[in-house]
């Protein structure tokens, strides 16, 4: 059996977690899941669509929002009870965090950000991302139960037509006050509002070449296309844009339908965050810029002149 940690945010299913279920199905047909919190109960049956047989939902009145260590404890307790061949989650900030807690509690190794997994008794072999995917490591994991996260977008979420809803088993994990000490107590707006970067279908990203005062047309284009604005690390380091908008290895990794890379040269740290875009359009004064070899389409020239023209053309096309 393979056990998958499936995340949700106050009752909204984490779609990326479905990718970990696909990875699990590649290892064994018996896939079960763990979710945490009372508001997961209503979501759990839906995992059947993706091939999960049973969802173990940890319920405790003290868990009302994301509580990382309690999630790790709940996952570890199910793993101890059922001894799955592997415990997986998607390599999101939360997925990696919960698996790290579970691995620490169980005193087992944890291989983060895997792109391939093969099980083999007491030694599993994985391929995993180092340097945010710029280098691939083949590693042997010495454990009878592999704990691993699968890197986002390495697997696609795949539903099974006609699959039955998953069975739901509620349980109360044994939790100490220490397990509950770290939890979300409040949320504050980033000021960005609107569509979140990680989920946006269109990301209009700007780099050094846009200039501090040049983001206006990028915001307009994002608005027109129902997308959001992103930026490179240089831009946030210079204080031009908030860190929440940073795309890249140390920012947010995105996989939109369309990614505009405007005035972005294409440092490896930035490419790591945007290379999963379905279509990329680059705008750059330098036709030799690294970004040009990752983009599908490129416009050579100054963003300050090109962007207003694109905004006008898109606005006209929308009528």
């Amino acid at each position: 059996m393979i056990l998958v940690y499936v995340d949700h945010d106050r009752g909204t299913l984490d779609e990326l977690s479905l990718q970990a279920i696909t990875a699990a199905r590649g290892l064994d047909s018996d896939v079960q899941a763990v979710m945490v919190g009372a508001d997961a109960v209503a979501l759990a049956p839906r995992l059947g669509e993706f091939g999960v047989g049973t969802v173990h939902v940890a319920v405790d009145p003290r868990i009302t929002d994301y509580t990382p260590m309690a999630c790790g404890r709940a996952l570890a307790s199910v793993a101890q009870q059922f001894h799955p061949a592997a415990v997986l989650a998607v390599g999101s900030p939360r997925g990696n965090e919960v698996l790290a807690h579970a691995a620490a509690i169980l005193d087992e190794p944890f291989a983060a950000e895997c792109t391939e997994i093969s099980l083999g008794g007491d030694v599993a072999t994985v391929t995993r991302n180092r340097w945010a995917g710029n280098v691939l490591e083949t590693a042997r994991v010495h454990a009878s139960m592999l704990i691993a996260s699968v890197t986002a977008h390495a697997f696609a979420a795949e539903s099974i037509p006609g699959a039955a809803p998953a069975a739901v088993v509620e349980f109360s994990p044994e939790l100490t006050e220490a397990d509950l000490a770290v939890r979300v107590i409040d949320r504050v707006g980033s000021g960005g509002g609107g569509v979140s970067l990680a989920e946006a279908k269109v990301v209009v990203s700007g780099g050094r070449g846009v200039g501090e005062g040049g983001f206006g047309p990028l915001e307009e284009l994002a608005e027109l296309l129902g997308g959001t604005v992103g930026c490179s690390r240089v831009v946030t380091s210079a204080g031009w844009r908030p860190h929440a908008e940073q795309v890249g290895q140390t920012g947010t990794k995105v996989a939109p339908e369309l990614y505009f890379a405007i005035g972005i040269s294409g440092a490896t740290q930035h490419i790591a965050g945007c290379k999963n875009a379905k279509t990329m359009i680059a705008i750059n004064t330098d036709p030799e810029a690294t970004i040009m070899s990752y983009a599908d389409y490129a416009i050579v020239g100054d963003a300050g002149q090109i962007m207003p023209a694109i905004v006008d053309a898109v606005r006209a096309a929308k009528g």
């Binding site: 070899s293 990752y294 416009i299 050579v300 020239g301 090109i306 006008d312 053309a313 898109v314």
Partner: peptide, 15 residues
């Protein structure tokens, strides 16, 4: 990348 133009004249192709 397929170069779709130089400067603002590329805007219609973007659409």
């Amino acid at each position: 990348a397929e170069i779709i133009g130089n400067g603002p004249d590329a805007a219609p192709r973007v659409v």
